[in-house]
Structures are given as structure tokens and as C-alpha cells.
Write a protein that binds this DNA or RNA. Structure first.
Lengths: 371, 371
DNA sequence: TTCTCACATGGGATCGATGCCACACCGACG
DNA sequence: CGTCGGTGTGGCATCGATCCCATGTGAGAA
């Protein structure tokens, strides 16, 4: 549990002039509008309290011996001057910044937003601040983010890896890293992920159980283990049920730069036998949903649909979309805790891996095939 | 345009040992696993290059006179040692941290996530990092966040104000602040917001134009000017059309701590004459949508619905939900740019206000009343 | 009375980068 | 030959907080 020391600073609601302006000594005003003040330093506080910086530091920090009356004087002075300790100086000396870097692939995607929210929740509970960078799944941006985290002496970094580079840089410099959702394969970092293969199996086995024999999959992140493992789960579920796994039932949208909707339409046209589609993430689910709606296919009568990743809209639509729910917020929180554990141990200890289990949420979008 | 200097650090894909380990002098290893290295400092680089810290600084920083061959030697040494300049030290000396604090009310709400994404986009384009704090609309947390931003010498702060406290603290310490989406009323800070009143008018006038005379509103943020102004727009649209604005057509969910769905149900039961409902934000829209679905009301035949704030799910549902679209991502971006302008001018200049215009997106959830 | 020890306080070095200033070259010009 | 201006280079103070250590108190013990 970290602590940001500094005056308690009552949440002064009403009167405009609180303690901030009461001081005359260090107050400095710049040009006309937008008043600028020199920040009060520990030295100012010490002088105002009539003592030395060392003593003032001890008084505010609570270490070592300080006479009670002096302590009170110092605290009063700090409050009066609006003193806020300078993290840069503290970091420079003490080698801990209180910052944790977080690198995600697309903040506009609700999945990553929720992940970030979970991380932030855990970090702020422990007194850390989150520096959030969106790399837009771009390797170069991710590397730049990693360098920035290094430069700011981040105490640790959480990231959804795009490539090996960022993790390698950080681990190479001794910064504790926890990978989220995906794994780059770099050794020496913790990881928290979902059991993607099992989640996909759950979804596909459910479809098979309903009697589907021709199940398609729409996937787009096979460059990462998330997509790969979901594809794997899909395949093995079919195989274990003794069903064929024809290549043409797999639509991989990671490659083609063209219009995804058009590719999906062609895929559906080319596979008229499909009675169910498994969308391997929320973006694919949206795509599939829109396309089926566009062509007027009845769900689930004409085609059952299951999504991997359960977003808010999936319970709003009619019929509700069956989905593999991932504990996304928790995933972020667990990862942050894992990271902070390691930070607390000063980076020591074996790299840990946590795998969280997804859960199949059944709604109206899945039913036995018609024929 | 800020710049994070430091070795170019090629995206070394293959071989495990890149330049990082090549150096013998400063390399230090901790306990068994999880190798730890002392960070290379400018001093290390200077020594490795056989020159002084000053010269090394000039060579890397590109200021002042440095002989070409020395400059090359220093750059090579920096690269070899994996040197990354220490932001804390630089901040301490140069008084600019490269950090911008961002305070939002609920990262799990897509609105705020998108806002944060827009901010991040603009900030990272300008070479700044975003420190993101979620205050959960809690005044105390917001104040704590503001203090943390102060402590880390954030160059500026963007926030969706919960109360006056946070903005007051920051402005009082001379930190440039731009308020997002809402305004606390504190003087001395920029603001970027949506024209909420006009947005609400657009929605309600549309309903009136369709022939609705009994339009309800469900609102929950009247403690902030967003909710208040939407309510105002709703009222004035009705009034201008010569329609009555009975109190019982307004459901304010900001107060009651009880079950919102139950309150909404009671509201609808108590107002059987309502032919349309205006949901004043995306959370209310979800609530209304679910409740209407639960009670089997046909939309738009039984009841038209318009939302303020257009989320992804609103185009997925059937019928699509008509909504007042806010340029949320842009709002964040504009605010960040406004803030950085001020940061560049060292806080000088009059406080600016930007108001962005929303736009009504018509889908299937609105139609003339049946009677 | 002197010594010890718990308590209290201030001096000053330190963290790493920066940038001013003094100094040391060099060729050229008076 | 002395001086001047254009180039390079290194010494050193600085930013603010921290913390080790030296110094200084008073009370109680020997």
C-alpha cells in the first residue's frame, strides 16, 4: 500500500480562498491572467516552520525522531503553503516512481477499456498511478511506449503484447512485466490470460450438442495466441465429436485488408450448408450479426451464432447473443495484483502464469438446426 | 512536439542477446532468476565514450558544440548500453514531466472510454503520456487524483469534473486544466463540451414533429450541467411547441438509491399517456430499452425512444435506436489540443471554451404515435 | 561528577540530467 | 607577437527530497 503524502487539503467546497493564498513568502505571480505560483518546496515549509529540511522531512514522513510541537508546526506550515512533495525528486533519490505503465491495443474496443478499468481499479487501490498508452496494435508504437515507461522509471508494466519487442526491452532493463490476455512468448514475465481454447470448446461443443454438424468460425487475430487458441479449440471440439473440419469453414480475416463485410458475405455464400457460426471475438461478432441482419437470415432458425467475449449489446439485441463470457475486469485486476506482488518483491521470484476460466452464457441466438 | 530521446533500439526479433548485455562495466546482476541490471546513466555513457557528462549530454541532446566524431562515439555508447534518459532527473531540473493527468468518472462506461481514447490519441501524437485515473464520480477520489497529478508535476490535466475541488486545487497551483464534457464552474480553466441543451432540443423536437404530445424524460445526472442542460432542452422544446411540461413526465434517477428499474417501471405505469421517452444518456437508454423489452412494449408503435449519446449497441438492436450522437472521440482530442496549447504558452492566455455540436441520428425507434 | 543512552536536530552528500561558465585550443589579423 | 573570435570541452552548481551521520541535549546511572 503506497501512500502519497502531502497536506490533507480539506475538500473545501464553499469559500474561494483556502489556505493556498494565505502565504506571503513564496507566493509569486506571473503575468496578468492565469495566476501562476511557485510551488512550495520542502525548504519553504521548513523555513516557514522555523526548522531544517531534514526535520521537516522527518516530520512529514513520520520517520525518526521529531518533537511533537515541531511536527505540528511543520504540518501546519505544509498545509498553509499547499505543499505537495515532488515525485520526481523522490523518484530520483528513492528509485520508485509510483507509476505503472499499461499498454493496450485499442481503447475504443470495449474489451480493452474494461481491461484498463480493471487494472486502474487495482492499481489505484494500491496507491499507484496508471500511465495508459494505446498502441493501436502497432509494433512501433508499442516499442515507443515501452521506452517511455523505461524513461519514466515505471515500477512495472502491464501490456497486451503486439510483438516480442516491447516486453524484451522492458524485461531486459529489469522492469517487472505482466502480459495481459495474450502472451508474446518472452521469458521472464508474468502472464494472466483466459483459457481461450477451452472457451472456444465450450461454445462449439454447445453447438454440437444442439445437433449442428456444419459450424463455421470467423476469426481475425491468428497472429496472437488468443485467436490461434480459439481456432484450436474450435477444431478440436469438432474433431473430438468425430466431425470433419473442412478448411473452407474457417474465415480468417487477419490477412485480407479488403472489406471485411464483403469477405464475410462471400464466406457465407460459399458455405450454404453452415447452420451455425462461431465468432472468435467481439468485433467479429458484431460483423457477423450485422451481416446476418443485412441478409435477413433468421437467428437462430437460419443460423445459430455464438460470440467469444460478451459485451453489453449482446444482451440488448433480440434474440440475445449467446457468448463466451470472459472475466475481463477481473483479468485486469488480477494482472495488476500479480505485477504489484513482483514489484513488492523487487522483481524477484519465478515468472507466474494465471489462466482464468471463461463461461458460456446462453441466450436466444443458439438453437438446434432446422432440417 | 515533444521527443523522448534514447537509443533507437532496433526491434530485434530473433537473437536473444542484443546490445543490452554487451557491456561489462555497469552490468550488475541480482539474485538467480529475473536478471536485474543497473540502469545506464549519462555518466556511464560518458565514461564509455571517453568524455565528460556535459559533452555526452550535448551530444545526445543536440545543443551546443560537439565534434562529429565525439558525437558518434557517444551515440554508439548510448546505444550499446541501452541508455534511456531519466525523466525524473530531467523533470527535476527542467520542470516539465511530459505527463498529462486525465480524470474520468467511469472507465467502464463506453462514453468515458472513448473520451479517454480521444485524449490519448492527441496526447501521444504530441509526445505526451496520459496518466489515467478513474474517480468513479467520487469527489474524494477526484481530489486524490488531483493531488497525485500535482505531485508528479503533470504538465496539464484534463478532467470530467465531479465537484469544484479538484479543479480548484490544480488551478490554484498553476496547473493548466481543461474540463471535459461538463463544467465545474471554476474560473481559470478551459472547457470543451457538447451543446447538451441543443442536443436535447433536437431529440424532443423530432418527437414533437412526429406528433407526440406526451413525451417523458429519464435523466440521472442533474447534479452536473450535462443532465441539467438536457433537461432544460427537453423542457424548452416542449414549451416552445406550446405543449405542457408536467412534472410527472420527468423521472430523475439521480436521487433515489433504490432499484432504478423499479422506479422506471413505476414511472411508466404512472404515465400511461406517454407515447415517447427521451433517455438523457446511454445508461438511461439501456435501462429504458430493457424495461420496455421486459414489459413487451412495442417500439416504436407503443412508445418511441430517443437516446442522448449513441453507442454501438444502438445500431445493433431491432429497431435501431434513434440517438443524439456526440463526437466523443473528437471531444477528447480537441480538449487535449486545447490543453497542450496552453501548456505550450506556459499557462498564459484567457480561458477558452469550445462547444461541439451533437447530431441526431434517426433509426427505427421513433415513429408517429399510434392513437 | 562523569559517563551513557535515549531522544532531537541540522549539515551535507546523493540521485541523474542539464546548462552556465571558464578554460583551452586554433587560425587570423592588426 | 599579442589579441581576438570561433570552436570544443569539462567543472560545477542546480533542481527537491531523502537519509546517513555528526552534533547536541537532558535525564538517569555509576
Amino acid at each position: 500500500m503506497r501512500e502519497w503524502r502531502g497536506g490533507a487539503e480539506k475538500a473545501g467546497g464553499g469559500d474561494g480562498k483556502d489556505g493556498l493564498m494565505a502565504n506571503g513568502a513564496a507566493a509569486v505571480r506571473g503575468g496578468g491572467s492565469g495566476g501562476r505560483r511557485a510551488r512550495a518546496t520542502l525548504r519553504d515549509v521548513a523555513e516557514a516552520a522555523g526548522t531544517s529540511r531534514s526535520t521537516a522531512s522527518r516530520a512529514l514522513g513520520g520517520h525518526g525522531y521529531v518533537a511533537d510541537h515541531i511536527k505540528e508546526r511543520v504540518e501546519a506550515a505544509a498545509e498553509r503553503l499547499g505543499y505537495v512533495p515532488d515525485v520526481s525528486a523522490r523518484t530520483l533519490k528513492g528509485r520508485s516512481s509510483g507509476l505503472v505503465g499499461v499498454l493496450v491495443s485499442d481503447l475504443r474496443n470495449q474489451f480493452y477499456a474494461e481491461l484498463a478499468a480493471g487494472v486502474e481499479h487495482a492499481l489505484s487501490a494500491a496507491g499507484y498511478q496508471m500511465v495508459l498508452v494505446d498502441d493501436h496494435a502497432d509494433e512501433e508504437r508499442a516499442a515507443a511506449g515501452a521506452r517511455a515507461f523505461l524513461a519514466m522509471r515505471a515500477d512495472g508494466v502491464l501490456l497486451t503484447p503486439v510483438a516480442r519487442g516491447a516486453t524484451e526491452t522492458l524485461v531486459g532493463h529489469g522492469v517487472p512485466v505482466t502480459e495481459l490476455d495474450r502472451r508474446s512468448g518472452v521469458r521472464g514475465c508474468d502472464a494472466v490470460a483466459i483459457d481461450n481454447e477451452r472457451g472456444a470448446r465450450l461454445a462449439v461443443e454447445h453447438l454440437i450438442g444442439l445437433g449442428h454438424r456444419d459450424v463455421g468460425i470467423v476469426v481475425d487475430e491468428v497472429q496472437w495466441d488468443t485467436g490461434r487458441n480459439r481456432l484450436k479449440g474450435y477444431r478440436s471440439a469438432l474433431r473430438d465429436a468425430g466431425l470433419p473440419v473442412p478448411r473452407r469453414h474457417v474465415l480468417d480475416l487477419s490477412q485480407g485488408e479488403g472489406d471485411q463485410a464483403a469477405q464475410l458475405a462471400a464466406f457465407l455464400d460459399g458455405n450454404p450448408a453452415l447452420t451455425a457460426v462461431f465468432a472468435a471475438n467481439n468485433v467479429m461478432a458484431e460483423l457477423v450479426w450485422q451481416e446476418l441482419k443485412r441478409r435477413g437470415s433468421a437467428v437462430p432458425e437460419g443460423c445459430s451464432v455464438v460470440s467469444f467475449d460478451d459485451l453489453a449489446w449482446m444482451k440488448m439485441v433480440e434474440p440475445g447473443l449467446s457468448a463466451v463470457r470472459q472475466p475481463v475486469f477481473d483479468l485486469g485486476g488480477r494482472a495488476a495484483e500479480l505485477l504489484l506482488d513482483r514489484v513488492g518483491r523487487d522483481g524477484a521470484g519465478r515468472a507466474e502464469s494465471v489462466v482464468l476460466q471463461p463461461e458460456l452464457v446462453l441466450r436466444g441466438s443458439t438453437a438446434p438446426p432446422k432440417n
